[in-house]
Design a protein around this nucleic acid. Structure first.
Lengths: 188, 188
DNA sequence: GTCTATATTTGGATAGAC
DNA sequence: GTCTATCCAAATATAGAC
């Protein structure tokens, strides 16, 4: 079963937007990856903004799939939060090179005041809501969203600094701190 | 005493790079602000990259001045760290709209793989080093840099999320958390 | 569905008059 | 030191043949 050209465009754009940023990625860059001509794009998408829309949709899909998988993989909400935090370790080399794909996109679209910035915010919101549900499950009903936002903020900050200072080792240290914080926050 | 055209260019570029991002800011944008013609730029700078260089220099200068002022204003290193954290509150409306000027620049230049990305990293490094010195002064000689990086990471994460979710109230809550963390970290 | 050719716009940069 | 005019390259987008 072949990947459609449309799918290939979206997947290549997804990677390039992550590595180079949205604005700094041109049709020529994507065309080189997919090996199609520039003109051919417009058979599949009306504009570059439409490609971005599809890329965000793809990322939303993937995020939901991953979180759903975690939901069945771990029965304990606390351990699910730990999986989220461990994501920083798993992706440490990419974080160092390109930062967080979600955070950097949200930051870029905010500066561009782009029509899709709200959609990108939804992507971040997906993690926020999922984390909040885990905290509720772990017995923190009252301040679940605050705790979720704290984990998210700490993760985003780690990504920015790992990228800025090109430092992977730092990630490990901060992750340990966050895990310790989690144990205390859950009153353990 | 008049501001030179050169100075006006740098200051306008500084603001525009913060609000719109570096790549998304054109000479036309800066020219509109300064009210000069596009061609006139090249009497003062050889290229757009050179303007960026000067903008980063300006930001470095301002950062050092501010930190020096704090150094004399507060005798207690712990209170100086508190001043740093309070900066998030002071700038909360700008953070909501544009994120952190240091973090967003570092993130953008990393994606562009720009020649000045190291210089931007130095800007972040200025805060890192200053914070580490305060922690040393507060008696945390052993892990001063780790503590500095933690404060920096938390601040950056707060900025990213305040910007993404357009939420100022969240900043206040996280700042309170960081202040509590600081008291505990300093064994108080 | 894919291509080539081309239109159009924008943005960075240069030349030279004043 | 500032301007106008202009060049050049890149990037988005369109038209129409195959």
């Amino acid at each position: 079963m072949e990947k459609t050209t449309r799918t290939q465009i979206i997947e290549s754009a997804d990677e390039l937007f992550y590595h180079r940023g949205f604005e700094h990625t041109s049709f020529a860059h994507i065309a080189d990856e997919v090996k199609i001509s520039r003109g051919n794009f417009y058979h599949h998408f009306k504009s570059k903004d439409e490609i971005l829309e599809s890329v965000i949709e793809l990322r939303l899909e993937r995020a939901k799939q991953m979180l759903d998988a975690w939901q069945t993989q771990e029965t304990n909400p606390t351990d699910r939060i730990r999986l989220f935090i461990q994501m920083l370790i798993m992706n440490k080399s990419k974080l160092k090179l390109y930062g967080c794909p979600v955070g950097t996109l949200c930051s870029e679209l905010a500066k561009l005041d782009h029509v899709s910035k709200k959609q990108a915010g939804k992507l971040m919101g997906t993690y926020r809501d999922w984390l909040a549900r885990q905290f509720i499950g772990a017995g923190c009903k009252k301040n679940a969203d605050e705790l979720a936002m704290h984990v998210l903020a700490h993760s985003q900050g780690i990504a920015v600094l790992a990228n800025t200072f090109q430092d992977e080792a730092f990630i490990k240290h901060e992750v340990r701190q966050m895990e310790k914080w989690l144990d205390e926050a859950l009153g353990k």
